[in-house]
Write a protein that binds this DNA or RNA. Structure first.
Lengths: 333, 333
DNA sequence: GCACAAAATGCAAGCGTTTACAGATTTTCT
DNA sequence: AGAAAATCTGTAAACGCTTGCATTTTGTGC
């Protein structure tokens, strides 16, 4: 690599001022006479000067970069969260370093460490469960962290979520009122805090309270074919209504049922707990717990900007409203 | 922000060597006696020393970061490309700064400039059409650029694509052989080089050569509802077979047809030109030109690593094979 | 025109690394 | 054992910027 072509020093010389003044102009510091500012700006333009953000970062100890940690880029759930984050980040002029961690080449804490080494000003974590090592690393550096669409059982980290328990209970109630009494729950990763400590307990309590018999919990159903292949088991277990955490799995179940000549919602009701595009384009369209994913991302990023500027944040645990949207995969529209 | 807690200097002092030696150990330089190396490593571990990547970047002029430019994060086409990129990037220990540019808060060249200011070692561009200003900026900095899943009419930039003309012609032929003679093409952005200079010309030539009458080109069909709302027009125009560039739009057309009580493929054949998850989960499943998106991303990133290391690259224009996958939205399965 | 405050500018020391180059130490060979 | 070669380690100058502080310039009121 070669030396940078034009530096702040070149501008300073050409404009007959010191580097300090150029720096002030570049950073919009008001302590510069208009006349001087204009002269500097003219030179900047003429020389095509662009500040070196790495050097700025080293000198100022702020990189205007935030890290995003996500399990999988191709999961629309995270893509929609990320979009909300991205828009707000752009607004506040932050760049985004994104790292997906489902790939097992590196362990989570290594990925996070490498992010922190890049001196990101903040991190938004969207994965399922923060490992102890990772949490430790976060605390050691004092880099602010916000969890978006996920929870941690330490209550140390800021988060933006919906009320998963309430949402699931409402969805289960819907199916119960539709006359379904053999309700099941299908989750991807049962170790995820959202599932293990919110959704599944909510389901278990619901079954208990309504005297609906033994829980039917299906775990590790992560993609389309997992869902597709699960369907026969649901039939065998006599399940007539399921709440499914991932919508891609819901679609698998749906298509499997249809291919078997069954009817949705008559034979099986499906409510998907994380609505993306997918849920609304399949037929019958899926009834969903509609999480405000874009907003969750946006709110998380906005909160992060405050934390990065040491501004006051009233409550670091934000719960956004969800909506139970009835479509064709449940009765009683 | 506060000073970094432990620096290379602390390690040096503690291990009774110079910073240079610590630096060598950190960077795996072999010119260090094993004994010294072990001592340094022990101190690094004990002190939890982590190198500051920003300082490394400034000193070495390599940031081990690449920039990704994408129109929209929630478009699965780009998500799947990105996944291929991400995996290879991880393998070569690059971080990824991702910027989406559909958001019109900043113009493309501003976004690119901000990426270049961050001193990324390379860029992968996946958007539709590189503006002149952007191309200029790329050339000015000598930062290597690879286009993935997109083209540029200047032939200056490396690219990884499929043969769009051939693929589309093959798809059109399929429909023609199914007896469809009123063929149309539906594109998102006609200014995209891939559409304007490959797909549409291929379609026009095909219509001409097969004497199929006036071309029916539908442009600016970008999302689900655009597709949904387009269907009546297709009916009015008597179209009985379409090739659609975006699969989300295909699904819109499909659902619109179904909702209107029409039959796919009997009344209308649909071939979607960029197959993601979506195309295979809807029913009837869509016949697709299956682009190897993951591989395209991976190959692009691999090529970029070579360019960043000034290695030889035999051909900077790589064309990967596609596959025409017949599903239920065309006859003759 | 003067004293003083306010505004504008410059000086120079960082920020935490890498990397020529030189110097020191160890190994190899005769 | 001694010289030459090979290996290892240290010195110090970058890298391109920010920023506290000192200094100079400008503006204000009388």
């Amino acid at each position: 690599m070669h030396k940078q072509e034009v530096t702040i020093y070149d501008v300073a010389r050409e404009a007959k001022v010191s580097m300090a003044t150029v720096s002030r102009v570049v950073n919009g510091n008001s302590n510069v006479r208009k006349e001087t500012r204009d002269r500097v700006l003219e030179v900047i333009k003429r020389l095509h000067y662009q500040p070196n953000a790495v050097a700025q970062g080293l000198a100022s100890k702020r990189t205007t970069t935030v890290g995003l940690i996500v399990p999988d880029l191709t999961n629309l759930y995270f893509a929609e969260l990320s979009k909300g984050i991205d828009d707000i980040a752009l607004l506040y002029k932050y760049n985004i370093i994104i790292t997906s961690i489902e790939n097992r080449l590196m362990k989570e804490d290594q990925v996070i460490q490498s992010l922190l080494n890049k001196q990101v000003d903040g991190v938004i974590y969207m994965s399922n469960r923060l490992s102890d090592k990772a949490a430790e690393a976060f605390k050691r550096t004092k880099t602010p962290v916000v969890l978006a669409g996920t929870k941690d059982n330490r209550d140390d980290f800021a988060s933006v979520t919906i009320d998963y328990k309430k949402a699931d209970t409402e969805a289960l109630n819907l199916m119960l009122h539709d006359g379904k009494r053999h309700l099941g729950i299908v989750v991807g990763d049962q170790d995820a805090v959202v599932n293990g400590e919110n959704r599944i307990p909510a389901y278990e309590e619901f079954m208990e309270e309504n005297d609906l018999g033994a829980p039917r919990i299906y775990t590790d159903i992560k993609d389309y074919s997992d869902g597709y292949n699960l369907y026969p088991q649901l039939v065998k277990d006599g399940v007539d209504g399921v709440i499914v955490t991932r919508d891609i799995s819901s679609v698998g179940i749906l298509n499997s049922a249809m291919d078997a000549g069954k009817k949705v919602p008559e034979d099986l009701e499906i409510v998907t707990a994380s609505a993306t595009q997918l849920a609304s384009v399949v037929r019958p369209a899926l009834t969903t717990i509609k999480q405000p994913l874009y907003d969750m991302g946006a709110v998380a990023m906005r909160m992060l900007t405050k934390l990065m500027n040491n501004e006051e944040v009233d409550d670091i645990h934000i719960t956004l409203p969800y909506e139970l949207v009835k479509k064709q995969s449940t009765l009683n529209q």
